[in-house]
Nucleic acid binder design. Sequence first.
DNA 1: GATGAATGAGTATTCATTCAT
DNA 2: CATGAATGAATACTCATTCAT
Lengths: 199, 199, 199, 199
Amino acid sequence: MGRKDDIINAAVSLFAENGYFATPTSAVAKKACVAEGLIFHHFKNKAGILIYIFTELSEVYIREIETLIKKAKPGLDALLAVVRFHFEFAESKSTKFKVLLRDFPLELTSSDSEAGKIIAEHMTISLNQIKKCIERGRKDGSIRDVPMEETAYIIRGMLNGLSRFKINMPGISINPNIYSEVENFCRRSLSRQNKSSDS
Amino acid sequence: MGRKDDIINAAVSLFAENGYFATPTSAVAKKACVAEGLIFHHFKNKAGILIYIFTELSEVYIREIETLIKKAKPGLDALLAVVRFHFEFAESKSTKFKVLLRDFPLELTSSDSEAGKIIAEHMTISLNQIKKCIERGRKDGSIRDVPMEETAYIIRGMLNGLSRFKINMPGISINPNIYSEVENFCRRSLSRQNKSSDS
Amino acid sequence: MGRKDDIINAAVSLFAENGYFATPTSAVAKKACVAEGLIFHHFKNKAGILIYIFTELSEVYIREIETLIKKAKPGLDALLAVVRFHFEFAESKSTKFKVLLRDFPLELTSSDSEAGKIIAEHMTISLNQIKKCIERGRKDGSIRDVPMEETAYIIRGMLNGLSRFKINMPGISINPNIYSEVENFCRRSLSRQNKSSDS
Amino acid sequence: MGRKDDIINAAVSLFAENGYFATPTSAVAKKACVAEGLIFHHFKNKAGILIYIFTELSEVYIREIETLIKKAKPGLDALLAVVRFHFEFAESKSTKFKVLLRDFPLELTSSDSEAGKIIAEHMTISLNQIKKCIERGRKDGSIRDVPMEETAYIIRGMLNGLSRFKINMPGISINPNIYSEVENFCRRSLSRQNKSSDS
DNA sequence: GATGAATGAGTATTCATTCAT
DNA sequence: CATGAATGAATACTCATTCAT
């Protein structure tokens, strides 16, 4: 509803298709059937569009993971649920996800910019959610004695890296059920009882 | 040495600092103290510079890993050596590495372009190296029974993801010895004898 | 008071600070806490704001000079009173004055436009007031035999030039009592009895 | 000659005709028969064109006045020669002069900008030249006892104000020999021997 | 090899102004 | 009177690339 959403939708599909840098605002306007000026009436910047998409998507991502964590009992289960959710989410919102992982401009990432702060903040929240799982897992005995900070960092990096890998390397085909394999990979590494119980 | 190298060096430092897109060829020329035209005399394209940097660096990366794999006896040791090497390499060649992981333009990645093919090819080689380690490990009993394709993909994605994470999220500080922790993470997941033998 | 005056006040301060061209109507609206559309409800044009400010200010300027001239007896005294008044007025209404002298747009000055006519008209009135002083002075013997037209033109130009000079050259400091010196300068040039009576 | 001069010439005539703000760089390029980009290759800024014109013209102005002052013997004669020269110069280089006096943007004048410094510097030099005349005149007895600083300021302001007046008020006709009248105006005010000796 | 003037298409952004509500 | 979403034309400036020298 509303022209603003038209702009977002147009931007999402164009950015996903051609990349943020390669998409002129004029193309966004044309696709959204609005005057180019309206984009800047609503977003102030071309980057503003990207930030808006990021924020909107990331808030859902974080919120749903929050619910997820609360539901799952043992820490390991929670963590693996997060892993599973990540890839399901990436699949279901694949277009928007593609936009964000594709060529998210570093100008925005540089932490001194307004946008950089937002991104860093969201990333920190996400890291904390993973840490919380690990911590809980170590307490309830489902996760073995691993360093919390580092492990969270590793898992977060792995999730991003894999999603990016898939999006950016369309040439390299891979079994789509790889993502369940990621769960196995993590479970083996983190599970306390080492009964080599997998696949 | 020679002007061509001046151009490469200038490009590496500028691309690392500001990103490929945000660096005009004029800036490269100025920093290299050459006329702008000379860049196109040597490289045909702006993208040509990036490809040159990528190829040069990637060839070393692959070659050194090749030697590494040959030396290490059990498959697991080889694989972990690859992991260790990746981060050491990223550290020692950090500027060039930053260029490649920073905002490697998707136009180049899209597999139909000349550059895209080169990149995909290198990535495939790298994947094969990892697969080879896993395969060997499964034969010599050092690695447990994991699916080769998927696991290689996971490890490759994890390495890229973590390096990217570090480079692009300077706001989020992390223990620098995280990389040895990555080894632990992988060893626990892949090692056959589950003696939970780690730090 | 009322929204219209809010707009005028906002415009005066912004135009004085940043110039007419460099001040978007959106900025005026924001500063005045009104919707941008309201400006055009009241003024038809962006230029309309400037014209309004000019007219309002110029009418006071002319009216007060009129009273002044009537009071002062000899023509020379009247003329010098005008000079003195000009700088006092410029000082007391300095913000508005700055607006008008700052970068009064030539599009408005070009005499075929509506605004140009108004401005030219006011300028003519002002010139006539000065002429009247000179004429009276020559009759009553206080002003020597100078060509009326040209002298009026010179004085009018001098007053504008000096005010503009001060406003636009903040880097060049000048004794603030320079304006009394302008009176001396004119008195010496115009006074019949050449007793070199000054300072 | 060469394309750079073509650009300058085109800019001078267009700026004089329509004003700096109302002249798009595209119009300058078209009139100069060059690609628009070339303007920025040579001048970095639109403002750069104006600065170039200013500097070039102002340097001639100052240099010629310098020679003038050296030639003229008594200080008063030197000063009046400066006044006469100013208007002759304004007439002969009328187009360029018009550009500078027309709507020289205050952004450039604000003394913190690069351009502002140049302008202030030139203005200071010009003021000093006038001061020098006054000082000499007071020593050689041709100029009466007037405050040097203030008088120089007044004359400089008067010259600018009158030239601006003429350029910007085409509606108000004035005897073209007004400028010799300016000389008289100044002579009467400054000359020591008060014989009211003038036309 | 090397220069740098010249190109020209491309693009984000601004801004006065309109108009439905 | 008042709003503010919407317009769309206008424009300064960028930048990869070419080419005569």
